[in-house]
């Protein structure tokens, strides 16, 4: 177990270092001179040279990289070239929105996905399975931003069931906060729910075929009881893995969901930065998402090995 954790941790560190290099060199590929951007078009050569010196652009690329990593580790992401605000403050203001939205979406997706998966297994070959399968297929084939537009049109505007846009911080008013996030969370969770449903169904079908389930049934345990005790426990492992694998999709989905529902989150910060070429913000956003992604995947793998003892071998996942 310790051996596995050490290998996994080491791999994550290597990935983090490589990813930080990709971001560092990627940002240096961006068109435009950062010193010129800071000083403005009419800057004198002396002023440009001073800024270059101040930004450390004259130093060797390796020294620059080490400084870059040092700043990032200290949480110093510089200033937005557009507003002059500290990038750290911008992130602190927008990240909670996205985290709440994603967490809510994951909860919705797990509940709906596992439930439909169990129903599909329980009623194999009958109409509830067909319905569940059809729903999953639709969830995979319908782009969530289109679903979001339709939901706003029909559920929010026409029937007024949910607010069409707007954000209320959950810390200020939990009820209104959750109410405002409900429709976006459902929309964001759709495709995740579809993937979870399919995998839960497949894993339950496999589990119910195994010898230990047959033994449990022979011992006289009722089918629903076996289903919940053995089937669900195994599908939990699957669900944890899927959330890790689908995280990239979830992040991309959150960006577009925020755009549709006009939520002031991390995705909006990202898009605004891209369209205004706000390089310090782009750099920070890309790095934070990447680091977060690597750390969450590490956490998923650790959790995975805790739930499933069969995985703890040799560090190969």
């Amino acid at each position: 177990m310790l051996n596995y954790l050490a290998t996994r941790l080491w791999q994550s560190i290597v990935t983090l270092i490589l990813a930080s290099m990709v971001v560092f060199f990627g940002v240096r590929q961006l068109p435009g001179d950062p010193a010129l951007a800071m000083a403005g078009e009419e800057a004198t050569p002396e002023r440009l040279a001073a800024i270059r010196e101040q930004l450390g652009l004259n130093e060797s690329i390796i020294t620059q990289y080490v400084k870059f990593v040092g700043n990032m580790v200290r949480g110093d992401f510089g200033q937005s070239t557009r507003t002059g605000a500290q990038v750290t403050d911008l992130v602190a203001a927008t990240l909670p929105v996205t985290l709440w939205l994603s967490a809510y979406a994951i909860v919705v997706a797990v509940i709906v996905g596992v439930l439909l998966g169990v129903i599909a297994e329980r009623f194999r070959g009958r109409w509830p399975e067909w319905m569940a399968n059809a729903l999953a297929l639709i969830g995979l084939s319908v782009p969530n931003f289109w679903l979001g537009i339709l939901a706003i049109l029909y559920l929010a505007v026409a029937f007024g069931l949910f607010p069409a846009s707007g954000y209320v911080p959950i810390s200020r008013d939990p009820f209104q906060g959750i109410y405002h996030l409900t429709l976006p969370a459902i929309i964001l969770g759709t495709s995740l729910a579809a993937v979870i449903m399919r995998q839960t169904r497949a894993s339950m079908i496999e589990t119910m075929k195994t010898d230990f389930v047959r033994t449990a049934r022979a011992k006289g345990l009722s089918r629903p009881r076996v289903l919940f005790r053995y089937g669900l426990r195994n599908s939990l492992i699957v669900v944890v893995t899927i959330i890790g694998l689908q995280l990239g999709g979830l992040i991309s989905g959150a960006v577009v969901t925020e755009r549709i529902f006009a939520l002031p989150g991390f995705g909006k910060l990202t898009l605004d930065a891209v369209f205004t070429r706000d390089y310090p913000v782009i750099q920070a956003v890309v790095l934070l998402i990447t680091v977060g992604y690597i750390l969450i995947n590490l956490a998923v793998d650790i959790l995975y090995s805790v739930i499933n003892p069969r995985i703890r071998v040799g560090g190969k996942s």
Binding site: G26, Q29, S252, V286, I289
Partner: peptide, 15 residues
């Protein structure tokens, strides 16, 4: 894998 496709797209379109 550490870069979600949207981030790769953001990077490419920025460059």
């Amino acid at each position: 894998l550490a870069f979600p496709f949207l981030i790769i797209a953001v990077g490419l379109s920025a460059i």
